[in-house]
Design a protein around this nucleic acid. Structure first.
Length: 216
DNA sequence: AACTCGGGGCA
DNA sequence: TGCCCAGAGTT
């Protein structure tokens, strides 16, 4: 959409409001190392960050490094993460990724998106989270929250996550990419929910084309 | 593009 | 009880 919805002034006000609404752009996942963030992000698929943090608190107390994770049997890891669901896939991915990090990258996570995406269970979104959050390398992860909220806010009209990612990177200053990612997620979870967004009372409503049309 | 994995939280 | 959740891989 090349109408005035995406004019720089509106976008700037939107980003300012988003920052004052969520002053700390912290990652919702708890982690101490880039590898821990990678594991937590794989675990976060289709489950809530709150549960992921409960599980990783226990898991990382037992195994937190690629060496320690790679030494686990699939059954041991499955037992640790079972309550998150999708646990067989996730356990297999995480152990295989740990082994690949040891075998291919000397035990250190690569700081390259294409290389990260060769790791089992690591797609574009997870790779971008690690780059932007753990390595401070400019990246704009697009998950279901970012996809939905960005489109509602009129920041992107793309039909695919990759299109939305490209539109957001073009529209938003590079130094705000990762912070905006975390803030859009928080806003998507608290206010701009998938089912019934809480438009009345939303601080972004004055700048939101969807919110203007929503019932009071 | 559709399908699969999945236990737990919540209405 | 039914719907939904910080995705990625396979067909």
């Amino acid at each position: 959409m090349e109408n005035n919805e995406s004019c720089p002034q509106r976008v700037e006000k939107l980003l300012n409001e988003l920052q004052s609404l969520y002053p700390d752009a912290a990652c919702g996942l708890n982690y101490r190392t880039p590898f821990e963030l990678l594991v937590a992000t794989i675990l976060s698929a289709q489950s809530t960050d709150k549960k992921v943090n409960q599980v990783t608190a226990r898991l990382f107390a037992k195994a937190a490094t690629p060496e320690q994770i790679a030494a686990l049997t699939p059954e041991e890891l499955e037992e640790e993460i079972r309550e998150l669901g999708l646990y067989r896939h996730k356990a297999r991915y995480i152990i295989a990724a740990a082994r690949a990090i040891l075998a291919e990258y000397g035990g250190e996570l690569p700081k390259d998106r294409a290389e990260l995406m060769t790791l089992p269970g690591v797609g574009r979104k997870t790779a971008n989270v690690v780059l932007g959050t753990a390595f401070a390398i400019p990246a704009f992860p697009v998950d279901t929250h970012v996809f939905r909220v960005a489109r509602r806010l009129g920041l992107a009209a793309g039909r695919t996550p990759l299109e939305v990612e490209e539109q957001l990177m073009q529209l938003i200053p590079e130094n705000l990419w990762i912070g905006t990612h975390h803030r859009l997620i928080r806003h998507g979870r608290l206010v701009c929910t998938a089912r019934r967004p809480h438009c009345p009372g939303c601080a972004l409503r004055p700048y939101c084309p969807t919110g203007r049309q929503a019932p009071a």
